[in-house]
Design a protein around this nucleic acid. Sequence first.
DNA 1: CGATCCCGCCACATT
DNA 2: AATGTGGCGGGATCG
Length: 870
Amino acid sequence: ENIFDRSRMAPKTPIKNEPVDLSYQKGCTPERNPITPVKLVDRPQPDPWTPTANLKMLVSAASPDMRDREKKKELFRPIENSEQSDTPDSLQCDMVDDSTVDEFEKQRPSRKQKSLGLLCQKFLARYPSYPLSTEKTTISLDEVASILGVERRRIYDIVNVLESLHLVSRVAKNQYCWHGRHNLSQTLQTLQEAGELQYGELMTVFQHKEQDMEYKFGEWKREIITDSQDRALLDFSEPDCPSASANSRKDKSLRIMSQKFVMLFLVSKTKIVTLDIAAKILIEETQDTVDHSKYKTKVRRLYDIANVLTSLGLIKKVHVTEERGRKPAFKWIGPVEFPGKTDELKGKSPTSDALPGTQRGARAPYKICAMGKRRFTRHVSFNSTQPCEGTRRKVSSEPNSIHQERQDEHCSKMINLAAVCRQKIEEDTRNPRTTSTLCLLPVPGDSDFCVNPLPQAIFPVVQADVPNVSLPNGISSQAPHPSTLASSKTENGNPTLFPNQPFLCFPSSSLFMLCSSLQEDSLRETLPTTGDVGNWSAEAQAAVPPAACQKRSSHKCAWPSAPVDEEPAAKKQSMELNDVPLSLIVPKKPFESPTAESAPGSDCTSAVYLEAFHHHSPEPADQECFDSQEQEKWSHNNDSEEPFPGNEPISNENANQPLLPQYLYVQPNAGLSSFNFLLSANQAPGAIGLAASPLPSLSIPCVMMPSAALASFPVVCSSAITSPLSPVSDGSFSAGTSMNFSMSGLASTAPVFIGTTTVVTPKVSPTPSVDPQQPSHSTLHLNPELAKSCGAVKLDSPVCMGHPVTLLKLQQPSSAPLTPKSIRPARHEAFFKTPGSLGDPVAWKKNEGNQPRSASSVQRRLEISSSSPD
DNA sequence: CGATCCCGCCACATT
DNA sequence: AATGTGGCGGGATCG
């Protein structure tokens, strides 16, 4: 419930009603709610006359908390409340009272409904995950508490944890400032490093045999005790001046605990920490006198923290079974790797400041404060920038380092994206059935690229909504076009699994990197886990003029060869820029120009860049980044050759070209793109060359999918694409050349098929020359064709046991926005729609709490942007 | 019955 | 002194 509506809730919504409820109501008709708890509440079937009920009633009546209950009750009966408000009659009230009592009794909101986790979600739903830098959201504890219908005490619990991660900061009494997740990755990185120092070794021990653990633990404790004082302070950024602010404060424990808790995760190899261990470690009590009560208390606190972290989508509950049985534990599902070289990036990105329209610019100069102290110098942001003041409270923490935000954001986005993907994958791996899946099927043509034929080779498709969770506003949330939406839903419902089908189906809104050959060492390339991602983007950014980054809106294709200078024309500004998850990769090769030429005519929703990517292989050793477990998992399922997008090793040696892996990268549209693709351009022999005019010269094993500007669409590609065949994109693409993806932007989301097989690739309109401008026409024509082709494929090739669904998708999208004018509007629409509003409720629910948040943020952004002409 | 964790008392901090 | 914070743990609920 909460998840959906946040769109409407303005921070200052009247306290009267639960904002959530209101929105909810608006969004859905009451009739639809039957299943929701609310419904239950409404049900006037008071049966209060059970002994228990009476008793409870009396008690509640007598107790002061009656109020609260009333409040809660209201929360749970959104509809009624709203009605009431509308009809201000005492009568109503009375009725309410009666019913309330009864109802109340009956369904005293279950404990769960009042859980801290839920509360936290509500809380988070009120604020954008990635607030615009310009908007400073202040949080009034009182207000929030009343709005959410809880005592302030509870809010403290939440805020304290959030504060420990720098999602908020205390500004004044009763006032907090919302920062969002912009700096989250950085914070986490800092924590990781700190954790490494503090717990690294210990955790290692823990993870292994418990035997020596005890011993180690004791040793560790002693150690800690000796110098921990110092350390502890360090870790906690807050205490800017540890010395000054008399560490006397014993408070902050929740914050500190929270940070430590997070550290444990980050340090842990398995990313799983049991409460038991965490509690023990965190007690840090001098002696092993882990007195039970203390332990108990610690655990209780950890639950509190865990709830919040869970709401943030950073951890999830799991159970680990050990000799003793199963223990409660939590698994880290947040970003794992962080760009190691923040500093470098910083220095490197010339563009950052230059970015046009960057709101950031408006910000006050940030000070870099060396608060970090010894080891944290680097992570300035971590500490509040203020000079120490007497007390912590006084220190109004400045929004954490604003500097290098772009990079950070960028990186974090990447990371988040990756994390999301990974998470999703993991989940899916576990329950393939529940989620839509991305199937990588054996690709006939190219072995390098080939996917494991095993049935297991099912990859989760990242739903459009999924990415939303962690992604910054623009990025993940592709505002799906209505039609798109429909299609996507369909997809959700039916996992795109084509047994034996030579297609690769990719979820939209995800970033994938496909490479031709697999190499062990290239693991670091793995999208999800690696910190490299950040680097890439950073690099790319640096290399490419900022302007180039965005602009699908402009419809111009920024080709590498073609200077991005045109970009300025694009009005869309920097706003989105920040959100652009990926940066363009500038082609280093000359051959690109041809491509550019061919493409120029067409509007590109997204810019496609080809680039010879050199891995700087900064850290060959990076493998570690990769969660070993994950690796195992993957390898487990597939013979080591998993072509999993993220993990796929980069093609290398076999590449024809001396240049190492080249990637074809499609720049997502600013903010709205559905997904990004990175494909290795290196062509392995037999690799697919894109026949399409755009990249003829390039032999690209794979084709990238354009990020449909607005739409998220699935891409299907067969590995063996013969040159003659041009990938067919949805109508909008007019199936011209693969490169025409750009056009897709106009089109709604349509699945893209890239296939080698003739069957697969219907040559709709092979002509690259297709005018992007008139996608509509082509679209029309094409659609039918596509449909046919699809049908043909389906029928003809056993390979494609494809679901009809898939086919449908293809057709649907095209049909929607055919008219030129519609196109425009469509886009516009897309602009304003957020996955949240459009998305499938179920899907949303499935996702972690953060999704909603991000969505909301997106929405906010969009709304804001709306004001300005596109 | 163990896992969770709500609830709110009450000490301490800040205003 | 009033009000803000938040440690803390009893005990209710959940599974």
